[in-house]
Each structure stands twice: as structure tokens, then as C-alpha cells.
Design a protein around this nucleic acid. Structure first.
Lengths: 219, 219, 219, 219
DNA sequence: GATGAATGAGCATTCATTCAT
DNA sequence: AATGAATGAATGCTCATTCAT
């Protein structure tokens, strides 16, 4: 019996080994430029073994994404456990999000890009369903945690809005997504200049945004 | 004399021929999956001829992007010429943006994705500078048109904000960018459900957003 | 244990398989006109496999050259082991050289030509260093074997010269190289006619040359 | 009548224009790396016009070679007109040859290489016959000038040999050719080292060589 | 005679995936 | 389970040559 468990544990360790290798390489070169060969090498495994744990390069990517989302999920859980006004929770969540993104920019970029690309490439291929589902579920939970924070804020009065919590959450998500794009596009274009001219930063801008959006005085 | 002009016109027509072919193929399969071979075939030209008009596959892409931006620019110019309150101008611009995006979703997606990817691939390559510059300039102008609309709104009282016009514009841009992402990610996730549950659509949500953001009652 | 060795042997056999294929094709069409595709086909391997054994088309060429030089080296070694006057050793070496060349004319030509061309093409590329080094070393050894033969000849009195052995060797090398050129340039020009008119051949001419050069009576 | 001549002269000028352009480019990049496009540009002509004057890229090359040979021919004529002992004439010719080579190394290399390559490429093509003939003739004349110098030397006693003048000339040619190879192979290998160690240079080595070869004391 | 736009065959190289051992 | 050798489809780009004007 114990033998089965050990096997199980080792299997998981291998998976992690691979995943870690991929993430490292993504940070260094991006996902597309990373070959299965390199991944195998970095993970100190053979190329063939990779396919024992992941059906596909695409699946591998999906798994990496899942890991990133789980990471974010843990952080969001940590935030919502804090005893703070809802408005603060919302703000902290968004800042947490942006921080995580910034610190793993290359990684996140790879996630986002591939999210788009894979449709181009996978024409017809099945795509491992479970992991994709997992990712969606985590994303849903992230969304719901934000909704909960908003609800808390409405109850404690720190948030004033005429919108449904879910709708407001969606709006905030769009803003986050937009800011994310800004970070990801290496060429910050004129945007950076505007921020500099006004002695602003993305986090500060975010606060301004929330100040307005969470204090809706319109009837 | 007329002969030179005719040549000139024909040259331009060829360019357009190619560009149109590329856009069609992008809509059908995405840019990466489109080979120079296919482009040539679709444009009813030989592969070699492509390289007479565009140095590179990358340059070709850049040119397509420029065309899309010019298209948007024209529409924005059309909006700002209208005799309407600034708040309306801003709303119209954003709606115009979203409409254009939606109608050429595949195309836009290709643009956005490639914007990210090329950095991965072009490590070291020179990249035709002029077209890239052109694109940046048009993007800047788009930004400035939005700023102008905001300024108009502030003067005519239709917009109330404590933010600098440029900063507000940036904020609106982020929101647009986020909404764009929503459109582009084929899998609309839980977001679509939320919209449906509340009998909303992106345009309507946008209006709500502007209602709040352009009527800042906070001190 | 034996398994590792077998693998090793098979690997070497593959390399030889490829090398042999290349040489055949070089004899038939020259190196430049030979495509990787053809090489793979002739070696009954896939194109990809070629790149498993040789980084580059250029590297492949280098390897072929090395093989040729090794072949020559063996023959030179065989000559110098013979118990003959030094003058005879020198003559035999030069004849050996010319024979080998003549019998693999196409092959040698490919070597010589590419030696020149690659500089034109490889501007910047790294070039596998080890094989290049190997080739240089073998060339050096060939040179030194000739020097040794000369030294033997000086000691046993069969060679009379006021030149340093190395310098004399260099001179002989130039003559060989010139004769080589004669063989390689398919159009033997007027040279052939001269030889015929005097009932001479390159080997005979070589003997005459050595007669003079190795019996230097000038003070 | 004058009009025809003028046309003729202009035609020749165009040819020279092109030839000069090619030579420049060969010196800069080698022949293979030089495209018809570049040649046209440098000659300030259109690509199509090139084909009005030369059937082929190959023919163009042949023409360049002819020009080089003519150049050499003139120099040889200049030498033989000098009132010097035959041995000196021979030496001067060979030095002239080596000088010319050295000063136009890139050019000469291109000539020699292509001499070999073209057979690989021209499988089947006709090759403009006249120019090829011309080249052969000039080469023959160069050879005969050397023979004449030798004959002069034999008569005036400055050259002692038991060989036929033509045969001796051939031998000297081989040596020149070998030295040429040395110059052309950028990597002078161990040869350079030998020269340095003995404080020699190719010209000095050549003198030594002639000292021996032109003073044949063997019966 | 001159032009230069158009052609299209030709080629090295990469890399995800498979499968015999 | 693990390996890694073998595969081969896929693709961007070059350039000598032609030909309508």
C-alpha cells in the first residue's frame, strides 16, 4: 500500500520538476521559443518522459497556467481573510493581482499570449479537458472572491454603488485586464509619459480609479 | 508624365492587393498559421513579388497593423467632428472602438497577439523602422483625440472629473483594453454569464462605466 | 554494458553511412549542388537525422575533409615506415599524394574549392571548432612527415640541399599544390600538350623536379 | 559612318562600366555573394541591361577573368622587353605574377574558385565560347612568354638546365600556382610559421627556388 | 536599346511527436 | 517507466533570368 503512495508521490514530484523547468524557461525565452528538448534537459529528464506526464506541449502550457492561477488564488484567499473594510479588500486584491503580474511579467505574458494563440494552432486537436476545466474553475473562484469582497464592502458601507456586485466586479476586472496589457506591452507607448508627467504610477492610478468607482454618488 | 503616375498607382494597388489577401487569411487562420506561400497565392502573385513590396513577413504584419490603425483613426476623426457634448464624444469613441474590434475580431486578435509575440521571435532583427514609427504615431493621435474629447466635455460641463484629461483618458483606455481582451478571448468565461444574468451587454456596461467615471462627485 | 558499446558502434556506423553518402554525391555533382535532402536519401535516413549527427551542412563538409586527410595521413605513415633512402621516401610521398588526388579528383576538388568558398559564405557563423582544429592538426602532421623524410634523406646522403628541411618541405609542397591544381582544373590547357609533346606525365615530371631540387649542387 | 563608331564606342564603355563594377564588388564580397542586382546598381544600369551585354552571370565572370589575364599579359610583355639576362626575366615574370596576385587577392581568388565551380553549375549550359577561347589564348601566350624568357636565358648562359624550355616553364608554373594557393588560402597554416622562423618570405623563397632550378648541375 | 517588375524553383533548418528497446 | 534516436512536415527567403512596355 505504502508502495503505491510512494509511486504516487514520486509521480507528482516529476510533474513539479517539469513544470518548474518550463516556468524557468518561459521567463528566460518565452514559451514559443522553448523547445521540448530544452524542457527535458532542464528537468533532467528525457524528451520521451515529458510525454508520459503531459500529452502535449499545449497541455504542458495549460498545466503551467493552472499553477499560476492557483498561486493567485492562494493570495486572494489570504486577502479576503483579512479583517478590513470591503473597499480595502477590493483594493488589496487588485494590487495583489498587479504585483503578481509585474513580478512574473514574462511568465504572465506567455500565459496570455498562448491563451490567444492556441486556438490558431489547435485546430481539431482535442486538448486535455480536465486541466482546462480546472483553470476555468479557478478563474471563476477568483472572480467570486472579488464579488464577495464587494459584497462585504457594500454591507460595511465602504463601497457605494448602484451596480450589482457581479457587474461591478466585471468592470473592475476589465480595468485590471487593461492595466495588465499595459504592463505586458514592453513598449509602454505614450502611456508611460502621461504617468510620468502626472507623477503617477499604475498602483496610484488604480487607487484613483477605485476612489471614483467605489464611491458612486450618481443617483 | 502620366506614365509615372500610372506606375505609381499600380504599385499602390499591388500593395493593397497583398494587404487585403493577408487580412483575409488572418481572419481565416490567424497570422502565424498563414504562410508567405498562401499569401502570394491569394493575392494572385508569386512568392518573390511579395518580397518586392515587403522586406519581411514581419514587415508585412506591421503594414497590416498600420492599416487597421488608420481605419480607426478615420473613424475617431469622424466622431470628433460631430457637434455633441464632450461626454457623448467620448462615449461614441469608445463604442466605435469596440464596434470596430468586434467586427474584425480575428483581425484585431492577430494584431494584438503578434504585438506580443514578435518580441519573442525578433531577437536581434532590425524591423523596418518607418512603419513601426508610423504605427506609434497613429496610436498617439488616437490617444490625443480622446484627450481632446475629454477636454471638450470638461468645458461644456458634460464631464466632471478631478483628474487631468490625459490621466482620465488613460483610465478609459485601460477599460477599453480590458473589454477588448474580453472580446478576444473566445472563451468568455463566467463574464458572459454575468452579463446575461443582468441583461447587460458590453456597450451597456460601458455606458454605466462612463456614467460613473465622467461624473465624479467625490470632492 | 555491451549494450552501451553496441549503441556506440551503431552511432559511428550511422556517421560513416552519412559521410559515405556525401562523398558519393560530391563525386557525382560537387558539394554545393548536393542538397541535404539528397544526402539523407542516399544515406537512407531522414533529413532530420542528418542534423543529429552534424550541426550544419558546413560541419558535414568539414567532417568529409577530415576523413580525406586521415586517409592521406595513413598512407604517409605507411610510406615513412619503409626502409628506403630519404629521397625515395620523399618521392613516394609526393607520388602517393598525387595518386590519391587523382583517384578522388572530384572529391578533392570539392574539398579545395569549399575551403575557399566557405569564407565567402560563413561570414559570422561560428563553425564547429573541434573538427576544424582536427583538420589543421592532421595537415600539420602531414607536413611534419614530409620534413622527417627530408631529414632522413639529408642524413643518409640521398638528399643534398642548403635549405632547412622545413623550408625545402614547403617548396615541395608548393610544387605538389601546383600539380594538384593542374589535375583539378579539368581544362588542362596547353600544359597537357607540352607533357604529351615531351612524352612526359606528371609523375615523371615530378621525378625530374626532385632530381634537381634534391641534388642542389649550388654552393 | 561616324555614328556607327560612336555607338560602338559607347557599347564598349558600357561593358567596361559593368566589368569595373563587378570587379569592385568581387573585391568587396566575392563573386558568389555578389548579385546581379548589386552589379546593376553599382554600374548605374538596370538589371535587364546587364543581360544585353552578357548572356549570363557565368559569362560575366568569364569576361572579368579575361580582363585580369590581359592585365597580366601586358605586364609580362613589359618584362620581356627589358634587356636583361633570361634568368632575370624569368624571375621578374614570376615576381610580377605573385605581386599582381597579392595585390588583387580577392579578385584572383574569385577567378580561381569560379574556374572550379562553374563546371559544377553549368551542367548543360552552352557557355559563351568566344570569351572562353580568348582566355585560353591569353593563358597560352603567357605561357609562351615564359618559355621565351627561358630560351633567352639558355642562350645567354644565365639558365642551365637539361629540361626542354616548355617543360621547365611548366615546372615553374606549378610552383607559381602552388604559391598562389598559399596566398589565397587565408589561413596560411603552418606554412607561415615556417617562413617566419627562417626569416623568409614568398618572394625570397621564390629566388631560392629559381637559384636551384635554373642552375641545374646534375648531369 | 533600356528598364525593372515579376517570376518561381531551390534549400537549409527546426522541432513536436513517436516508438522500439 | 524511461529513454533518446529517428522522423518528416513545414516555411521564410534569395536571386538569376525573362519579358512587356
Amino acid at each position: 500500500m505504502g508502495i503505491k503512495e510512494r509511486k504516487e508521490r514520486e509521480k507528482k514530484r516529476r510533474r513539479d520538476q517539469i513544470l518548474t523547468a518550463v516556468i524557468e524557461l518561459i521567463e528566460e525565452q518565452g514559451f514559443d521559443r522553448t523547445t521540448m528538448e530544452e524542457i527535458a534537459e532542464r528537468a533532467e529528464l528525457s524528451k520521451g518522459t515529458l510525454y508520459l506526464y503531459f500529452n502535449d506541449k499545449s497541455t504542458l502550457h495549460q498545466a503551467v497556467k493552472k499553477r499560476g492561477l492557483q498561486h493567485l488564488h492562494e493570495k486572494f484567499l489570504h486577502v479576503i481573510k483579512q479583517d478590513l473594510p470591503g473597499a480595502e479588500l477590493v483594493k488589496n486584491m487588485m494590487l495583489t493581482f498587479l504585483n503578481t503580474i509585474t513580478q512574473n511579467a514574462a511568465f504572465t505574458k506567455a500565459m496570455v499570449i498562448y491563451e490567444h494563440i492556441k486556438e490558431e494552432n489547435n485546430q481539431g486537436k482535442p486538448e486535455t479537458p480536465s486541466i482546462v476545466e480546472d483553470c476555468k474553475n479557478i478563474e471563476d473562484e477568483l472572480f467570486m472572491l472579488m464579488v464577495r469582497a464587494i459584497q462585504i464592502g457594500i454591507q460595511d458601507g465602504s463601497i457605494q454603488t448602484r451596480l450589482q456586485p457581479k457587474v461591478l466586479s466585471l468592470m473592475l476586472n476589465f480595468q485590471m485586464s487593461g492595466m495588465l496589457n499595459f504592463y505586458l506591452s514592453g513598449t509602454h507607448k505614450s502611456a508611460t509619459k502621461v504617468l510620468e508627467e502626472n507623477e503617477l504610477s499604475i498602483p496610484k492610478l488604480l487607487e484613483e480609479f477605485l476612489d471614483i468607482q467605489l464611491n458612486d454618488q450618481t443617483q
